[in-house]
Design a protein around this nucleic acid. Structure first.
Lengths: 262, 262
DNA sequence: CGGATAGTTGAGTTATCTCAAATGCAGTGG
DNA sequence: CCACTGCATTTGAGATAACTCAACTATCCG
């Protein structure tokens, strides 16, 4: 039936020779990762004792993979001994019904763990799919587990990620169960803007916006047609502007009101 | 504004002198707990070394509290150094919007941890409220954490609970975002039946059903009026029967179809 | 018994969906 | 470079699931 995706493996760690390389990140592509400070990667780097670090300065225990746009990264029933973390690109994590209905649970941005469930078991139950071309880094679960027990600080930081994810899940249920279409869409936009801003990926009020309306529909529990109508209204009301795969928030105050934010 | 609930503290551990006491559970009310085998309590008991167990045979490190029906057990912003586990009664865990809209995230049955987030931090963000009279047991988080690091097996079991909870959360999002009213309601019923059955709390196809339709509405993202209509249909179609706070599944096969189960 | 809470039912409204057609847009192969 | 194919988006018309309102009834509890 469904072919299991074969990501193109690119064992990287070639120095990019970039001018703005941060030496504490090692000589890997991480040096230019927009989300370095907030990612598992940074946490882990802090945990590995100097002695254990590869001489290359690369992140330990990980390999980098590349997946082209629209390709599946993980199948819901796929077993994995690795914990993947997004390095670049946008992807989407979802579950689906046999009849095709589908719910997107989160949009994954650089620095996000693809699925923290992989920290604890080999099975995520979720479908993960690249929106743009995506690169990600795989840590071996057994390595992480070993670190986790040695290192109480690592444990605390991962607990924090884990709790955040649960707060997100709670909010998602509230949004889907109790908010209107416009509220849901407005909050998705604001939420993405906030997350991108944290990663330095906003230019002013403008963000790259590779999502199709079908993604927004599946994330908000709506129909693509309805999403189109609501986005149309938002644009006509000059709250936002979308063109050539980028989105600008024109009237943030009003958009927040539409989103019933905070 | 809102008064913080003052649960009636009843430090228990009095032996119930019950005929069916399981000696491995200690001489506490746990002896008759319907959910013992599956609960955190049983897991923890297994972890505490013989030497550390109180001579009384009681569960270590915990006290039992009682809350009357309809009373708040935890406020969303309440800090707690304890991890509570339900011993008896039904309760409900939810989040709400300032304007009163509310989403129930789960129904808590005996043996359920009130909120596993309490394992990792003092704040749950959720409102927890008793439906019937509820008793619960509080474990000190710092004690649990200490155990967690000593005992890899405990860690694995708790990981499992944690992952289950995440799977539930994912399913909830799918239900709210992508299923019809009848499907959502039918699945709530089947889901509860399944969970009660695991605890030996079903008599045949009949369960105690203390929930108000308002609870079902808030759990399914619907209106109480609409819930009434759907339940009415289910009863007229002889899928279920509700009377005097108990619910019987009459035609399980059809109910599963209505629920689009599995 | 009386007051409060919970559930039922009907009528009318509305948010969102379905269907369908038209347009745009991006990549492909000739 | 162009025609072509396949996806994405827009727009309108009509259908429908779920909502609101309101009145009525039933149930619970003191």
């Amino acid at each position: 039936m469904s072919r299991v995706a074969q990501p193109h493996v690119i064992v990287d760690e070639a120095s990019p020779g970039n001018a703005h390389v941060d030496p504490t990140r090692g000589a890997s592509t991480c040096a230019v990762c927009p989300a370095w400070e907030m990612s598992l990667c940074a946490i882990l780097r802090g945990c590995v004792s100097e002695a254990d670090r590869p001489a290359s300065g690369a992140l330990p225990m990980s390999t980098v993979h590349t997946v082209p746009a629209r390709r599946t990264i993980f199948h819901p029933k796929e077993w994995s001994e690795f914990v993947p973390v997004i390095c670049s690109g946008w992807s989407v994590s979802s579950i689906a019904l046999p009849d095709g209905r589908r719910q997107i649970l989160s949009f994954l941005l650089p620095g996000d763990a693809v699925c923290t469930a992989f920290l604890f078991g080999p099975l995520s139950g979720r479908h993960v799919e690249a929106v743009t071309e995506v690169t990600y880094r795989k840590f071996k679960r057994s390595d992480l587990r070993a670190l986790l027990f040695e290192n109480r600080d690592l444990f605390d930081r991962i607990s924090k990620i884990w709790i955040d994810e649960r707060v997100q899940a709670d909010q998602l249920a509230l949004d889907l169960g109790r908010r209107t279409a416009s509220e849901r869409i407005a909050r998705q936009i604001l939420n993405l803007a906030e997350r991108l801003a944290k990663r330095g990926m906003m230019s002013g009020q403008t963000m790259e916006f590779p999502l199709r309306q079908r993604h927004i529909a599946d994330a908000t529990g709506l129909t693509p047609v309805h999403v189109s109508k609501v986005l149309g209204e938002f644009q006509r009301a000059r709250l936002i502007e979308i063109s050539s795969r980028s989105l600008t928030i024109i009237n943030e105050a009003e958009l927040r009101i539409a989103a019933d934010w905070r």
